[in-house]
Amino acid sequence: MARGSLSETLDHMIIALDENIISKEVLIAFRAEYDACLKLINGYILYLKKQKIDDL
């Protein structure tokens, strides 16, 4: 769910840029935050999967 919400937020930011609500610089800054958050989420998911395998 977290990855889906993050991707949905990126979609909203792209639409906001297309509608001239935000600047390209704001989108670029958000994209950096997006990439960092996605790495954290993916790392946490892998950690949880590893824990589940180790518990078996």
Rank of each mutant, 00 (worst) to 15 (best):
M1L: 12
M1W: 09
M1N: 13
M1D: 10
A2Y: 09
A2K: 11
A2Q: 09
A2W: 02
A2P: 06
R3P: 00
R3E: 01
R3V: 05
R3L: 07
R3W: 00
R3F: 01
G4N: 01
G4Y: 05
S5C: 13
S5T: 08
S5N: 12
L6D: 04
L6G: 00
L6S: 01
L6M: 03
S7Q: 15
S7R: 15
S7D: 14
S7P: 07
S7K: 15
E8S: 08
E8L: 14
E8N: 11
E8V: 07
T9V: 11
T9Q: 13
L10P: 00
H12I: 15
H12C: 15
H12F: 14
M13A: 04
M13L: 04
M13V: 03
M13D: 04
I14T: 07
I14V: 14
I15W: 08
I15F: 09
A16N: 03
A16E: 01
A16F: 00
A16H: 00
L17R: 01
L17W: 00
L17Y: 01
L17A: 02
D18Q: 05
D18W: 04
D18K: 11
D18P: 02
D18H: 06
N20I: 03
N20S: 10
I21E: 14
I22L: 01
I22N: 01
S23M: 03
S23N: 03
E25Y: 00
E25K: 06
E25H: 00
V26A: 05
V26F: 12
V26W: 08
L27Y: 00
L27V: 00
L27R: 00
L27M: 02
I28D: 12
I28H: 12
I28V: 13
I28G: 09
A29V: 05
A29E: 12
A29H: 05
R31A: 12
A32L: 06
A32W: 05
A32M: 06
A32R: 11
E33Q: 12
E33G: 07
E33F: 07
E33M: 10
Y34Q: 02
D35G: 03
D35M: 09
A36V: 09
A36H: 09
A36M: 13
C37L: 12
C37T: 08
C37Y: 05
C37F: 05
L38M: 10
L38N: 04
K39I: 13
K39D: 10
L40N: 13
L40P: 07
I41N: 01
N42Q: 12
N42R: 10
G43I: 05
G43C: 06
G43F: 04
Y44T: 14
Y44H: 13
I45K: 05
I45Y: 04
I45D: 04
L46A: 14
L46E: 14
L46K: 15
Y47H: 07
Y47R: 05
L48C: 09
K49T: 09
K49L: 05
K50C: 07
K50S: 12
K50Y: 10
K50A: 13
Q51G: 09
Q51S: 07
Q51T: 06
Q51A: 13
Q51W: 03
K52E: 11
K52W: 13
K52H: 10
K52V: 09
I53D: 12
I53F: 15
I53R: 11
I53Y: 10
D54M: 08
D54R: 08
D54G: 04
D54Y: 02
L56V: 11
L56R: 10
